[in-house]
């Protein structure tokens, strides 16, 4: 079970969190023309890298904040976690 540092609460066990997928995805701005490709990349296409990965976790059984976590998908090492408003 992972041990995830929540920037708001401290170190907490994985079972307090829900996984939220790729944290580097940016939603296209509202009311803007978006090409099919751009939209597909936002909705469907993910990289799923082997190694470092920035991902979202939602502290659902804690502070209910979405946080960004940089994790190694092979070793599960967590390098860094930041609050939703910051970039990794």
């Amino acid at each position: 079970m992972l041990y995830i540092f929540c920037p708001h609460c401290g170190l907490r066990s994985q079972n307090e969190f829900a996984y939220g997928g790729d944290g580097s995805v940016k939603r296209p701005t509202l009311n803007k023309e978006v090409s099919d490709k751009e939209w597909d990349n936002f909705v469907y296409n993910r990289k799923s890298p082997r190694g470092k990965h920035v991902e979202l976790w939602h502290h659902i059984s804690g502070c209910r904040q979405w946080i960004k976590v940089q994790r190694d998908t092979v070793t599960h090492e967590i390098f860094k976690t930041v609050s939703a408003d910051k970039e990794i």
């Binding site: 829900a18 939602h58 659902i60 904040q65 979405w66 939703a84 408003d85």
Partner: peptide
């Protein structure tokens, strides 16, 4: 969770 996602990450 959906609402929190948009408020915290997309339209802060």
């Amino acid at each position: 969770s959906h609402l929190e996602y948009y408020l915290q990450l997309v339209w802060p």
